[in-house]
């Protein structure tokens, strides 16, 4: 474990001595602040668009940091030959991979904390919804008493919807918990992403191919992963079987994207569900790291 921590420390030092993180943070902050200074119809209380754009920028920046940092680790060590003096020490290849992963993941965590703190300051500075006027009515259009009466009947009209307390999402503790959950789940997702990219870095020879393929793959999973089953059901066999198998095998990273819940002041997710998602992320990360070690352990490192 000592070796793993030592190697991870080097990765973190490298990240904060490079300019990438600072550039991305400044860019995110700049865009958010510029958009925040725009007035729409002389209304200073509009906040959700800002939260949406800020969170989108945070997600993009975090993926850039995670993928570019992880993709660089092993290939650059080999190219720069810094891997040789390191592996000439009593360090196993497994410890090397674990150290690189931990360093990248911790570095992403530090970056996320800074980003989310900024997000919190920006969104809270705009003010939150008044808890007495959350502004939510369940279903149906607002016109007429007849429609309002119908509105009560329609609560839970969407299959599988949960009971919703209109005020639950805006209490200060609730808001803070929401932010913490969003950060934690985001960080767990970046663990899976880092592991995917590390695996790519021992499979693909060029870091640029790894970065491109990883970006496309991960964006595909985030945007399309949850819908593959719907697409599969509309296909004929054997495409249906292939798509459904892919759907079950892919890591479902979209579970960890709860931006909508933060933007729309939803109540926090149950602790059990968060824990299960965390276990899922840990399991996938472990599997991917094991595969990385399996590929890397017999690789010839020639001088």
């Amino acid at each position: 474990m000592n070796n793993v921590l030592a190697i991870s420390g080097i990765v973190i030092k490298e990240l904060y001595r490079r300019k990438d993180f600072y550039v991305l943070f400044v860019l995110t902050a700049l865009i958010t602040l510029v958009l925040g200074s725009v007035s729409f119809f002389n209304d200073a209380k509009i906040v959700r668009y800002l939260k949406e754009i800020c969170l989108l920028l945070i997600w993009v920046a975090s993926l850039v940091i995670a993928i570019s940092t992880a993709a660089r680790q092993i290939p650059v060590e080999r190219e720069n030959r810094t891997i040789f003096p390191l592996l000439a020490k009593p360090v196993t290849r497994g410890q090397f991979i674990l150290g690189k992963f931990l360093g990248c993941w911790l570095a992403c965590g530090v970056a996320l904390v800074v980003f989310y703190l900024f997000f919190g300051v920006v969104s809270e500075s705009r003010g939150r919804s008044d808890p007495a006027a959350t502004g939510l009515t369940s279903s149906a259009a607002p016109a007429g008493p007849a429609a309002s009466a119908k509105a009560d009947d329609h609560e839970g009209a969407a299959g599988g919807s949960e009971h919703h307390d209109d005020h639950a999402g805006t209490e200060p503790f609730s808001v803070l918990l929401n932010y913490v959950q969003a950060l934690a789940l985001h960080w767990l997702m970046l663990g899976v992403v880092t592991a995917i990219v590390l695996l790519g870095s021992v499979v693909f020879s060029a870091p640029s191919s790894n970065v491109t393929i990883s970006f496309i793959g991960i964006l595909g999973i985030l945007l399309l992963g949850e819908h593959l089953n719907k697409v599969a059901l509309r296909q004929q066999q054997p495409a249906q079987a292939i798509l459904y198998t892919t759907y079950f095998l892919l890591p479902h990273l979209e579970w960890f994207d709860i931006r909508d819940r933060v933007i729309y002041d939803q109540p926090p997710i149950a602790f059990v569900d968060c824990s299960l998602a965390a276990l899922y992320a840990i399991a996938y990360t472990g599997l991917l790291l094991f595969l990385t070690w399996f590929v890397f352990r017999r690789k010839t490192l020639t001088l």
Partner: peptide, 12 residues
């Protein structure tokens, strides 16, 4: 071990 081509972490 001292390699022939000495490359170490340049940022350290």
């Amino acid at each position: 071990y001292l390699p022939e081509l000495t490359y170490y972490y340049k940022f350290l």
